[in-house]
Design a protein around this nucleic acid. Structure first.
Lengths: 130, 130
DNA sequence: GCTTCATATACTCCACAGGGCATATGCGTG
DNA sequence: CACGCATATGCCCTGTGGAGTATATGAAGC
C-alpha cells in the first residue's frame, strides 16, 4: 500500500537489478528468471510485482506463463537525474585537460602520447567506463 | 563495519541525494548543508560519513570547518551500469519509429504531423525527460 | 586556562523491507 | 472435473538503516 517508491529505492535491491539485467536482452517468463537467478519462485514474483508497480516492467500472458519485459521510462528518469553530475565531472575532465595542456607546453619533457583532440563541444561521456 | 555498500544503496536515501545535488554546484561546509536542507546537524554528519566512506565526497579542512566536495567516480559507475539499458531503449525508439514509418506509408489516413526526421545515427537521448 | 563554535560519534528506538514457507489462484489437459 | 504446472499472495520473523537526542572531540579566541 505504500506506492510510489522512488526509482532509487527500487534498484537498491540486488535481486531486482539482476532481474532487470536479465530482461535487457529479451523478455523472460517467471520460471526462466527463477532458474537463471537460482532464487525461490515467490521471491521472484514479489520482486517482479515491485518492479511492475514501479513501471520498470510489463507483463503479457502467454498460455499459462507470464512474460515480463523491460519498460524504459523509470531508468530514463534515473538517467535524467544523472545529467547534472555528468556536467559536473565532464567540466572537471576539461579542467584537468586544460591543466595538462599547460603542463605539456610549459614542460616539454618526455611525455607518452597524451595530446588529446581539443575540438569544441566534445561529445559527452558515453558511459563506457570499462 | 559493513563497508562496501553498493552505489545504489547509498543513493537510495533522499537526504543523501539532496546533499549530492547541493554539492554539484560547489563545495559546502557541514553547517551550510545543514541550513540549506533544514536537517539536524548529526543527521548531516552521518550521511556525509556514509557518502565519504563510499567515495562520493571528499572533505578538506578550512579553519574549524570541513568543506565537502563531490567526487565523480561512484556516480560514473552508476552511469556505466546504465549503459546496457540505454542501448536497450534507444534500440526500441528506433524500432518504434521504423514501425510508425511503415504505418505512415501503408496507411495514408488522416495523421497529425508525425513524420520524424530520419537522419542516420540520431543523437542519443540527453535525459531531458521533462 | 576556559568558553564557544563547528563537527563527529555513541546509543536507543522503531519501521519496514526481504527471506522463507505455506497456500491460493488460475490456466491447460487428460 | 480432477489433476498438474505456472504464478501470485499471505504471514511470520529477523536485520538493518535512519531519526532523535545527548555527548564527545577539537580548533579559535579571549
Amino acid at each position: 500500500m505504500k506506492r510510489v517508491e522512488s526509482v532509487f529505492e527500487i534498484i537498491a535491491e540486488p535481486s531486482r537489478r539482476a532481474i532487470l539485467s536479465l530482461l535487457v536482452s529479451s523478455q523472460q517468463s517467471v520460471g526462466e528468471i527463477e532458474r537463471q537467478l537460482r532464487m525461490p519462485q515467490p521471491t521472484v514474483s514479489k520482486h517482479l510485482r515491485v518492479l511492475r508497480e514501479a513501471g520498470f516492467v510489463e507483463s503479457t500472458v502467454d498460455r499459462q506463463r507470464r512474460l515480463y519485459r523491460l519498460e524504459p521510462k523509470p531508468l530514463q528518469e534515473l538517467d535524467a537525474w544523472l545529467a547534472p553530475f555528468r556536467r559536473f565531472w565532464s567540466a572537471h575532465v576539461d579542467a584537468l585537460e586544460r591543466h595538462l595542456d599547460r603542463m605539456d607546453q610549459s614542460t616539454p619533457t618526455k611525455r607518452k602520447t597524451r595530446r588529446r583532440r581539443r575540438g569544441p563541444n566534445r561529445e559527452r561521456n558515453k558511459g563506457e567506463t570499462k
